[in-house]
Amino acid sequence: MCNLYSNTIPAEAMRRLFDVSVERNYLGNAEPLPAIFPKQMGPVVRMAEDGRRELLPLSWGFRTTKRSTKTGAIIQPAAWNNARDDKVRSSGLWKGSFEHRRCLVPASSFCEAKGRNPATYYWFALKGDEGRPPFAFAGLWQTSCYQGKEGQEEVATYTVITTTANEIVKPVHPQRMPVILKPDDYEQWVTGNPAEAFELLQPYNADDMQIVRSGKSEKSDPLT
């Protein structure tokens, strides 16, 4: 699963990479994000109601109401930051978004941890001429409505879809990895029908990936 990733792509570069018009870029002068954790804001590319792409910040993790197992009282909402590829067509939490609200999640690397006390953190990126070539996760978005401590709340959220780990990720995280889309597949992901979109939920080619950083204490991906 993916609980930490980075996006150090300049906002203007994201706009061009993901074919978003100037007036549909709602990031402003966004700063590089060397570490994005669940419940934090991250850039997302989605289709607007008029069928055009827009680039905007959303909160990572679909929210649902959560109660204390001891008291039954409402506590901080759960954040579902990953959606399994084998659940997106059947789970009530994911199905509606998979059918109608798919998005691209721009990134430059993602992190997986191995071991405990202390864990070793491995940062994965794509190979290329740049140190961290930009890419996009397959994502879903929704306006999450849930019961908070102060009553009914709602927040615009996104989640990242995971699939079977490939050969470079498997030694660190044996089961899952985020779905990375190829640029030629972006349009099919955001506008294709559910069957066409589901075809894209595959492990990325391990030969085209690399580990760019590992360590026990540094949890953010450096900009250089």
Rank of each mutant, 00 (worst) to 15 (best):
Pro118Asp: 10
Ala119Trp: 11
Thr120Gly: 08
Tyr121Met: 07
Trp123Gly: 04
Trp123Asp: 09
Trp123Glu: 07
Ala125Arg: 03
Leu126Tyr: 02
Leu126Trp: 01
Lys127Pro: 07
Lys127Val: 09
Lys127Ala: 09
Lys127Met: 09
Lys127Trp: 01
Gly128Thr: 03
Glu130Asn: 04
Glu130Val: 03
Gly131Pro: 05
Gly131His: 10
Arg132Met: 12
Pro133Asn: 14
Pro133Ile: 15
Phe135Ser: 04
Ala136Val: 02
Phe137Cys: 06
Ala138Lys: 00
Gly139Phe: 00
Gly139Arg: 01
Leu140Asn: 02
Trp141His: 15
Trp141Arg: 08
Gln142His: 13
Gln142Pro: 07
Gln142Gly: 05
Thr143Val: 13
Cys145Gly: 10
Cys145Phe: 11
Gln147Thr: 15
Gln147His: 14
Gly148Glu: 10
Lys149Val: 08
Gln152Arg: 14
Glu153Lys: 15
Glu153Leu: 14
Glu154Asp: 14
Glu154Met: 15
Val155Ile: 12
Ala156Pro: 07
Ala156Thr: 09
Ala156Leu: 14
Thr157Tyr: 04
Tyr158Glu: 04
Tyr158Met: 11
Tyr158Asp: 05
Tyr158Gln: 08
Tyr158Leu: 03
Val160Lys: 03
Val160Ala: 05
Thr162His: 09
Thr162Phe: 03
Thr163Tyr: 01
Thr164Met: 09
Thr164Asn: 13
Asn166Thr: 13
Asn166His: 11
Asn166Gly: 13
Ile168Asn: 03
Lys170Gly: 03
Lys170Gln: 13
Pro171Lys: 09
Val172Asp: 04
His173Val: 12
His173Cys: 10
Arg176Trp: 07
Met177Val: 06
Pro178Leu: 06
Val179Gly: 00
Val179Trp: 00
Val179Asp: 00
Leu181Asp: 05
Asp184Arg: 13
Asp185Ala: 11
Glu187Pro: 02
Gln188Leu: 02
Gln188Ile: 00
Val190Gly: 07
Val190Ile: 15
Val190Asn: 08
Thr191Val: 14
Thr191His: 12
Asn193Val: 12
Pro194Gly: 07
Pro194Val: 06
Ala195Thr: 13
Ala195Val: 12
Ala195Met: 11
Ala195Pro: 01
Ala195Asp: 15
Phe198Arg: 01
Glu199Asn: 07
Glu199Cys: 05
Leu200Cys: 12
Leu201Asp: 04
Leu201His: 00
Leu201Phe: 05
Pro203Val: 10
Tyr204Ala: 15
Tyr204Lys: 08
Asn205Trp: 02
Asn205Lys: 07
Ala206Val: 03
Ala206Ser: 15
Asp208Trp: 00
Asp208Ile: 01
Asp208Val: 00
Asp208Asn: 10
Asp208Ser: 08
Met209Gly: 09
Met209Val: 06
Ile211Gln: 02
Ile211Arg: 02
Ile211Met: 02
Ile211Trp: 01
Val212Met: 10
Val212Tyr: 03
Arg213Ala: 14
Arg213His: 10
Ser214Cys: 02
Ser214Asp: 05
Ser214His: 06
